[in-house]
């Protein structure tokens, strides 16, 4: 174990070195601090990931100028999208996104944001959603859960309306013929806490948000919204096994400002590929149950298209 880890570390260091060499001959080098915009407030899941990325870049000395985190969580990410759209220095402005990258421009059309104009940089991984209940509920399978919800008066919590959690829960309601009372919270941490405190009956937290409570045995996973069973929860069935063609992930991606020069785009793409391949990031993905989903820039653009279509449909089902 130790040996493989070390070999891997060496490998990662070698790639890092190689790409450093590569980037030293590249046409673009940042000549001032990089504005590293985060589409969420300080302390949330997206913020944690951004700061982790920054820390890896810092630790391995991957950038000539630092990445400076800049939290712009206002308006469900609208503030961050506007900041990127109007960036004065397009070659030094990048954004860490989550799914509000897709939903916010759809829900707030007056912003005039077209995400297809943004510059793809890197897909660092996707965060699957999982259905959780408190252990005291005695529920251990998805079927039992369905029976319980159908008794009525069922209360679930999640992030704000129109955001990821509410989309997943609306999908459950409509496709399993359920009626659920939805309580919106400011962030995933607060949701996880109120499930552990039994203020609400179930959640669809990302595993990283409720990790501590899961390890302590307070909460029980029932169903994963991933395409395949998650390595961290091998006994938890996926929604596909329950006969629905559905999966839902929060994207953890980096994008560049619209109109970024090709050289700068190439620089950031190489930089985040290097970070992606580090031992640190791979270990982080494993411990926080992120799924790898590496894509090249073309694939990312295509992915954005399908995600926008999917979210349009989900939002329409919600009546948004």
């Amino acid at each position: 174990m130790n040996l493989t880890k070390r070999t891997f570390g060496k490998l990662a260091a070698a790639t890092a070195f190689a790409s450093m060499l590569a980037s030293s001959v590249a046409a673009f080098e940042p000549n001032k601090p990089i504005d590293f915009v985060i589409m969420a407030g300080a302390g949330g899941g997206a913020d944690q990931i951004a700061r982790f990325l920054q820390s890896v870049a810092e630790k391995k000395d991957l950038t000539t100028r630092p990445l400076v985190p800049n939290n712009k969580g206002g308006g469900s990410g609208a503030e961050a999208l506007i900041a990127l759209n109007n960036a004065s220095d397009k070659d030094h402005t990048i954004l860490v996104t989550l799914n509000s990258f897709f939903t916010t421009p759809l829900r707030q059309e007056n912003l005039g944001i077209d995400i297809q104009t943004f510059t793809p940089v890197a897909m660092m991984g996707v965060d699957p959603f999982v259905l959780w209940v408190h252990k005291d509920s005695g529920i251990t399978t998805f079927e039992q859960w369905l029976d319980e919800v159908k008794k009525g008066d069922y209360i679930m919590g999640g992030t704000g309306k129109g955001q990821e959690d509410s989309l997943v829960i609306t999908y459950l309601e409509q496709n399993f013929d359920l009626k659920i009372k939805y309580i919106p919270y400011s962030g995933g941490g607060a949701v996880a806490k109120d499930l552990a405190g039994k203020q609400i009956m179930a959640t669809v937290n990302n595993p990283s948000e409720t990790k501590g409570f899961y390890q302590n045995g307070d909460v029980v996973p029932l169903l994963a919204f991933s395409d395949e069973r998650m390595p961290a929860f091998p006994d938890v069935p996926t929604i596909k096994e329950k006969g629905k063609d559905f999966s839902y992930y929060n994207q953890r991606a980096v994008v560049g400002a619209p109109g970024m020069s090709d050289d700068a785009a190439k620089y950031y793409q190489d930089l985040f590929k290097t970070i992606y391949e580090t031992e640190e990031w791979q270990a982080y993905m494993e411990s926080e149950s992120l799924s790898p989903l590496w894509m090249d820039p073309e694939q990312q653009k295509a992915y954005w298209k399908t995600q926008v279509e999917n979210h349009k449909k989900l939002l329409a089902e919600m009546g948004e």
Binding site: G73, G75, S76, A78, E79, I82, N110, P184
Partner: peptide
């Protein structure tokens, strides 16, 4: 700025983006 519950912006005076936060 932002209504956490409905997930919608509110009281963004004159559409100035500074009020979004």
């Amino acid at each position: 700025g932002f209504d956490e519950i409905s997930g919608a912006p509110r009281l963004v005076f004159f559409d100035i983006s500074g009020f979004l936060h």
